[in-house]
């Protein structure tokens, strides 16, 4: 089980959190203007790196806030967390 450092509450067990997948996927500014291919990429394609991944978590059994984390998917090590609206930090 992961120990996830919520940026508001501090380290808590993974069971308190809800996963939100890849971070920084913005809704298209003008969805109607997208080609089928572009729409498919927005809807279905997400990064799947073996390495550092920027992802969203919600502290659903705690402060109920969404935040972002940088986690290495090869080791599960969390390199850092940051609040929504903050820029993605450089992975250490």
């Amino acid at each position: 089980m992961l120990l996830i450092p919520c940026p508001w509450c501090g380290p808590r067990e993974e069971a308190e959190f809800h996963y939100g997948g890849q971070a920084h996927v913005a809704y298209p500014e003008d969805p109607a203007a997208l080609s089928d291919e572009e729409w498919a990429r927005y809807l279905f394609f997400r990064d799947n790196p073996k390495g550092v991944f920027a992802e969203r978590w919600s502290h659903s059994a705690g402060c109920r806030r969404w935040f972002n984390a940088l986690r290495d998917t090869a080791t599960n090590q969390i390199h850092g967390v940051y609040r929504v609206g903050e820029p993605r930090p450089v992975a250490s």
Binding site: L2, E13, E14, A15, G21, T73, A74, T75
Partner: peptide, 13 residues
């Protein structure tokens, strides 16, 4: 397990 991972182990919960 909900979170993406390439580790061949999952969470106890």
């Amino acid at each position: 397990d909900a979170a993406n991972s390439y580790r061949q182990r999952g969470a106890f919960h």
